[in-house]
Design a protein around this nucleic acid. Structure first.
Lengths: 161, 161
DNA sequence: TTTCGTGCAAATTATTTGCACTTGG
DNA sequence: CCAAGTGCAAATAATTTGCACGAAA
């Protein structure tokens, strides 16, 4: 990784505390990559920017159909998600429910997920110590680590009792 | 990886201090749970016991069809895997390839996986420091952690160049 | 206008289910 | 014998692809 410069740990939901809002960064990146400004892309980016947690393709389709903004066809959702992932603007999260989830990739909000195997709830968490272990490990293996995912399975507080 | 890589991959019945081979433990557990001793179950357990790395349902089907032992129908494979997972005799590993992988759950062989996003190869690794971080974390959160999975994405040595 | 973006529907892939036949106890 | 086990094929669910039309540059 790079030299850990400004250690902004403002874990609020103020997108863009580090400068440019994610939605704009995503839109620019798409433009730079040669993509046009389509309505479906804008709608999807807007929705992802407003979320704090990962959404599945189906959830994205419902939310967009639900009137919040303009509806987008399932195929377009998958295609756009693919583009965004290729540009590393979103992160694909697979927590073992037979479907993929996606969330805006914000450096300042790196985190992992706990999954309640009972109610299906997905809860984000962050842990510097864990990150340190993974970084150290990445330096030690004969493998070029680009990303990492940690998933904790178990029962959330409500389901545990 | 590190020079300290464990070298007991002789895929025989090389087990830890527990003494009892996994295949037997699995068979007993199934019996205790009230299941009968079916041919498909035996074949599947035998195959899983012989592996050191996680297999997908399709790979399991192929291996069993390949003559090693008796062929087992896809539906049976999924059903048996489900039973084994419910009894915690196997672990489901999802590394983001759109399919699930399964491996015998052996306490003494707890590990995680690196996935080459280029060639698809899945490589196991273990790291005590990482485990320590996760354990410490598990004690700290308002969530009952039953299992955990760490997946490193990137490029294997061959694909990295 | 020309090319890309998007929607719709059909195609694929992984997994599940229904039902008839077989087998273990 | 009888309930559970298994195979086969059809059913689902998530995701991908082909193609025609509408929109951005």
């Amino acid at each position: 990784m790079g030299p850990s410069s400004t250690n902004h740990h403002g874990h609020g939901h103020d997108h863009g505390a580090t400068g440019e809002p994610w939605a704009e960064r995503a839109a620019s990146a798409l433009a730079d990559a040669g993509y046009r400004r389509g309505g479906a892309r804008a709608a999807l980016i807007g929705l992802l920017d407003a979320q704090s947690c990962a959404l599945s393709a189906a959830e994205i389709e419902d939310q967009l159909k639900g009137g919040a903004s303009r509806p987008v066809a399932r195929a377009s959702i998958y295609r756009i998600l693919e583009e965004l992932e290729a540009l590393k603007l979103i992160t694909r999260v697979e927590v073992g429910q037979g479907l993929a989830r996606f969330e805006a990739a914000r450096e300042e909000n790196h985190h992992h997920h706990m999954v309640c195997d009972d109610c299906g709830q997905v809860i984000p968490f962050e842990d510097p110590d864990l990150e340190r272990s993974i970084e150290a490990l990445a330096d030690r293996v004969a493998f070029t680590v680009a990303e990492h995912d940690v998933v904790l399975h178990g029962a959330c507080r409500d389901c545990a009792r």
